[in-house]
Amino acid sequence: MINFVLLISRQGKVRLTKWYSPYSQKERSKVIRELSGMILSRAPKQCNFVEWRGHKVVYKRYASLYFCMCIDQDDNELEVLEIIHHFVEILDRYFGSVCELDLIFNFHKAYYILDEILIAGELQESSKKTVARLIAAQDSLVENAKEEVSSLSNIIAQATK
């Protein structure tokens, strides 16, 4: 299982965190600081797997962001690399050539997408199309709700005119 997901920029800024195993707030800060230092200092040609506290951390750099997932010892590291790639491709399709700014200003949407890919630290869906469809459907519900509120406001405005 995946214990947590971490997105950090090349400067060590946190862009997204998701914890599937219980970590206290203090532990989380410590983990982030420790892993940031470890991963950012690795050379580009080194492999994408790091032993850490009895777990393995799989990481991959895309543009200015490092996508990191902490997995158990008996998990398949190569598969996790593919899961990271799966996540990045879905983000890319959703935002259209996704970049770091998209994730900063729309971080909640990145979380919605991650929640359609992983639950309880396990892969949920291998079809990018299905994930995109589910996200679009829920986005529509939000838009519809906004429109309802807006139209209700209009009715009230006219009534009081």
Partner: peptide, 11 residues
Amino acid sequence: LSNRDNNIRYV
């Protein structure tokens, strides 16, 4: 082991 990809050699 002969693969040029570091990740493959590691696993």
